[in-house]
Design a protein around this nucleic acid. Structure first.
Lengths: 220, 220
DNA sequence: AGCATAAGTTACAGATCGGTAACATCCGGT
DNA sequence: ACCGGATGTTACCGATCTGTAACTTATGCT
């Protein structure tokens, strides 16, 4: 995928890449530092000189994951500049790749499940990441002209998070198989309401009932 | 919650209850059989006489979880007999309790994340359970007169699974906070379409586009 | 009372875990 | 050429893990 040779990297980067791969494959608690160091072509002593503890290594890996996500968001903007709706659809598509194609879901969410202790230092990184992702998605929805942008962002967040974990528990033929069509339908629904009820008429306050989703047969 | 005294139970049941509690609190890989046996008021030897291995104990615990789910479904039918739509709303409500109130999500999904190895014997139990839950939900949707029952079931499945894991990764103030309103809105949307497009007109085949969700301002 | 079975006790085996100490070696910059 | 920091090597520590052996005690049934 990338042209960089594994052997030319410095130990620190080799360790992080290897750790991420092994954590993903066997779970964080399922792999020891010995294995990571060996698989990274180095030794445990060097690993501990770069990362003071396994927890530190875990945190470094999660920050690396966050960096990958940043790159993906940048790619959205680069591929569809000034077209937030197209970026939103790209978000669904990329999410589906990770949810249906990949067998092991979201590294952050998996870490949150595995590191059960509520005071684990990695929890800060995870929660910060998830909050950031949620804000970015809401901002994107707002830019795309969605009136209830926050609600759409949360709906899509739950759907993607659900698809990625459902892939692991219910299998690839389970509910996650319909993630794309469901996500697209939800976006279409929120977009249609936003056309009928543009921003300046939003807080009219005449009707008290919150907007409800409605299914209608429409041609694509 | 239950009147049964812990001390009056037989070792096997005490072990399972204790194991479920500890697995939930610290993760499956985060607690050893020694701790389980001691906390259950017995010893490791007795544990191994009842369960040949830790994996066997894990499987027994997951089957116990499945039993609890059976009881909840029975309770739906008992509380709202012959009212599938009311049962569907109860499903959302109970799901929210588990997703928002409880900090540790679905035991089955957590186990699927923790037991990363693809050939782990517990995976059969998990996948079977998730498939069964999905089928029951789809059946309930069908009984409630939903035309696209399977799609609604999968949507709700993804939302609940997502809410339960998002509670752990993004925190209780994250997207999971809106699970109930989102779920209710989705149910309302599918129900409205089902009224407009009853079963005998479903497969007319004139319009090729699949039904899309649409948001409309309606009073409750 | 007697007997089979279940349960408790103690000690241990073998492996792996995270983490460290002491020392040898390599490699880049001046 | 030299020197300092980064890296590699080996051996080790104490703790914990799953799982077992051998033996004693309690319990329930006839």
């Amino acid at each position: 995928m990338e042209g960089c040779d594994f052997g030319l990297m410095r130990p620190r980067e080799r360790i992080i890449r290897t750790a991420r791969e092994l954590f993903r494959k066997h779970g964080i608690r399922g792999v020891g530092v010995d294995t990571i160091a060996e698989q990274a072509g180095t030794n445990k002593m060097t690993l501990y000189r770069h990362f003071g503890s396994k927890d530190d290594l875990i945190i470094a890996c999660l920050r690396d994951v966050a960096g990958d996500a940043d790159a993906i968001w940048a790619d959205f903007e680069a591929t569809y500049p000034d077209d937030p709706m197209a970026q939103l659809h790209a978000w669904v598509r990329i999410g589906a790749e990770c949810a249906v194609g990949d067998a092991r879901g979201c590294d952050m969410a998996n870490a949150a499940v595995e590191l059960a202790e509520g005071d684990h230092p990695a929890r800060h990184v995870i929660e910060e990441f998830k909050t950031d992702q949620r804000d970015r998605l809401a901002k994107l929805c707002r830019a795309a002209g969605i009136v209830k942008a926050d609600l759409l962002a949360d709906t899509l967040s739950l759907l993607l998070e659900g698809a990625r974990v459902s892939r692991q528990s219910a299998g690839p033929e389970g509910p996650c198989a319909h993630f794309i069509s469901i996500g697209e339908a939800v976006i279409a629904a929120f977009a249609q309401e936003s056309q009928k009820q543009p921003l300046h008429r939003q807080a009219r306050g005449k009707h008290k009932g919150r907007g409800h989703l409605r299914v209608a047969s429409t041609r694509t």
